[in-house]
Design a protein around this nucleic acid. Structure first.
Lengths: 252, 252
DNA sequence: TCCATGTTGGAGCGACGCACCAATGTCCTG
DNA sequence: CAGGACATTGGTGCGTCGCTCCAACATGGA
């Protein structure tokens, strides 16, 4: 009991910060955001808590690293693919298309990793100018310069776009956690039911207190998140372009 | 030890859900978001955990109630005051002014309660169509109808505005927690220093990896959050108005 | 060969949310 | 006015969490 040979063979695979982050992301994806604990991580990697804390400083740093890894991958995948013909819109030629592509890339990343929404939101408030902001700003800023915005307003216009992204993405974290894998099959039906319940609740509100809510309850029920996300981007883009009369008109 | 008379006089003041929520808000304001625990609440109200759980279901529900209370108060205070001449802009006559007033009301509420930003963000992702969304939508929707937006697009335009609010507010949760009370005196200097550090870090990034970030680092250092928030709102409003050619032109 | 240095696993600490319950207050009924 | 039904209270304890600390191991250079 006291003189065990510890372990016959150590380390079936070397432990590293990358491996830990990778395992953390996988855990979050498969078991939900509540499942990322030091203890489950030690079981998954068949190690102890000391080893983990040796590689990543604290639990929060691990979360930061996981977020940064997913965001970086999503944005890198975008700049890799030459054009985006299948991504929901035409070829990515105009700056507007590039901006839309980045936004949809983030949107889809959140769809694949539902825990991202809440974690990004928290991270943004805790560290407003951290790596997430930096990466997204850079990805949006590139095409922003081609929009005809004068340099002194680059920060203002980019901020506006990014803030819209973050807010919209935060609200649209689907898949109530648990089953994950949530793609189009029954995830879509589950989501429709969820929206229907919410819309119904809004429908039943007191018309005196919430006249506007009642008027749009139907639209809540029938709207598509991704499409609405795009509509919002187009609205903001239109506002930006309308402010600098060099170019004009956005599709639709 | 076992036969103590319990307590001579019970309840110096009746415990109620309102009193608990009130104490929770005060705790969050004075001691930061990490300070709201059942144990600190019991000490503050000189009671036990059982009494608290009897009135509010779970810790999460208490947080929801606290958020809802603060948001409701902020929005109610807006509709009470007849006009808003001192609030940073002219009299609140046009629908645009009303929308700006609501947005700034939320912005200022977050400034007064720094914990609001993170909590609202989490709440939005966990319960996308909860009371926060409902209240903000209703407050924005009222003037939205006067903007010339056709009814079938009310939901889309309001969503866009609200999402921008949430994203911008999430990133601008000032006061690094702790001292609170943070008003203009040294809170402003502390914030300036914080921004200067962030901008400096952006300035030192690799120009090959982050050319855009480097180009706007100075604007990050010198910008004013509230002003930038307003600029963003105006951009979105311009985009909305430009989409429905009934009215036009926003100030500045 | 042998020790310096970098890694590993796990026991243990303090703090958390929450379930549970005996003791007490409150108020209605006879 | 007695007494019991019921709401409310205070507190103890359970399970779990993040994290610290340290002995046991691995590994490479002298």
């Amino acid at each position: 009991m006291a003189t065990q040979p510890r372990q016959s063979q150590r380390r079936r695979q070397v432990l590293s910060r990358e491996r830990i982050v990778e395992a953390a992301i996988e855990l979050l994806d498969t078991a939900g955001e509540g499942a990322l604990t030091v203890r489950t991580l030690t079981e998954r990697l068949s190690t102890g808590s000391g080893a983990i804390y040796h590689h990543v400083g604290t639990m929060n740093e691990l979360l930061e690293a996981a977020i940064d890894s997913v965001i970086a991958d999503a944005l890198a995948a975008l700049s890799t693919e030459p054009a985006a013909p299948v991504r929901g819109l035409g070829a990515a030629g105009t700056p507007e298309d590039e901006i839309r592509a980045v936004a949809l890339g983030l949107f889809d990343a959140v769809t694949e990793h539902p825990w991202l929404a809440a974690q990004v939101a928290v991270q943004i408030t805790r560290n407003p100018w951290g790596s997430v902001t930096r990466r997204v700003f850079e990805s949006i800023g590139r095409p922003m310069r081609a929009l005809g915005v004068p340099q002194r307003d680059w920060f203002a216009t980019t901020s506006t776009l990014v803030h819209y992204f973050l807010g919209a993405i935060a609200q649209n974290a689907h898949t109530p956690h648990g089953t994950s894998d949530g793609r189009t099959p029954e995830g879509e039906a589950e989501r429709a039911e969820f929206l229907d319940t919410a819309a119904g609740a809004w429908q039943d509100l007191d018309p005196d207190d919430y006249p506007f809510i009642r008027a749009i309850a139907d639209q809540v029920r029938e709207h598509d998140d991704r499409e609405q996300f795009l509509t919002g981007i187009n609205l903001v883009l239109r506002g930006i372009i309308a402010s600098y009369p060099t170019r004009h008109e956005i599709a639709r």
